[in-house]
Simulated assay, not measured.
Amino acid sequence: MRVYLPCTLPALARVVEAGELGPAPLTGYAVTPALIEWYASGDTEELEYVALTEAARASLRLLADGDGGAVPRRVVVVAEVPDSDLTAGAELADRGRVRVDRPVPLAKVAAVHVDDLSAVPDVMAAMDALPAADKGDDDARFTVDGAEAHELMWYATQEIPDLLG
Rank of each mutant, 00 (worst) to 15 (best):
V109D: 01
V78Q: 03
G89K: 08
L106W: 02
E91Y: 11
A93E: 15
L92M: 09
V104D: 01
R102E: 04
R97Q: 15
V100H: 01
A107C: 08
G96V: 04
V78F: 13
A93P: 00
A88P: 00
V100G: 06
D101A: 09
L106K: 02
A90K: 04
R95S: 08
D83T: 10
K108F: 05
V100N: 02
S84Q: 13
V78Y: 13
P82L: 08
V98Q: 02
A93Y: 14
D85C: 13
D85Q: 14
R102A: 13
A93Q: 12
V78L: 15
A90P: 06
E80M: 03
L86Q: 04
V78P: 08
R99I: 00
E91K: 12
V104K: 02
P103R: 06
A110H: 06
E80Q: 06
V98L: 02
V81L: 07
D101E: 14
V100C: 11
S84P: 06
S84R: 13
V77C: 00
D83F: 00
V104M: 10
D85M: 04
P105M: 01
P103H: 08
L92P: 03
D94M: 09
P103K: 07
E91T: 14
G96I: 11
L106A: 12
L92G: 00
L106S: 13
A93L: 15
G89R: 00
V100Y: 09
A93R: 11
P105L: 02
R95D: 10
D94G: 07
V81Q: 04
P82V: 09
R97L: 02
E80K: 12
A88V: 06
A88C: 07
A107G: 10
V78D: 09
P103G: 01
P105Y: 01
L86G: 07
S84V: 11
D101T: 09
A107Y: 04
D94L: 10
S84W: 07
R95L: 15
G89Q: 09
V77T: 10
G96T: 03
E91W: 15
V78N: 07
R99W: 04
A110S: 11
S84D: 14
D85N: 12
D94C: 00
A88R: 03
A93V: 15
T87V: 15
G89F: 11
A93D: 02
A90D: 14
L86F: 09
G89T: 08
E91V: 10
D85K: 06
R102L: 06
T87D: 14
G96L: 02
R95T: 05
G96A: 13
E91L: 15
S84Y: 07
L86T: 10
S84G: 13
P105G: 09
V109Q: 03
V100L: 06
L86M: 08
R102V: 10
D101L: 15
E80G: 05
L92I: 11
P105F: 01
P105S: 05
R95A: 02
L86S: 01
P103Q: 10
G96Q: 06
T87Y: 14
S84C: 03
A107T: 15
R95E: 12
V98P: 00
G89I: 08
R97A: 13
V77E: 04
G96H: 00
P105D: 04
R102I: 05
D83C: 04
V78M: 12
A90C: 03
R102F: 04
V81W: 01
V104C: 06
A79C: 05
A93I: 08
E91F: 14
R99S: 04
D101M: 14
L92Y: 08
A79Q: 01
S84L: 03
G96E: 05
P82F: 10
L106M: 13
A107R: 12
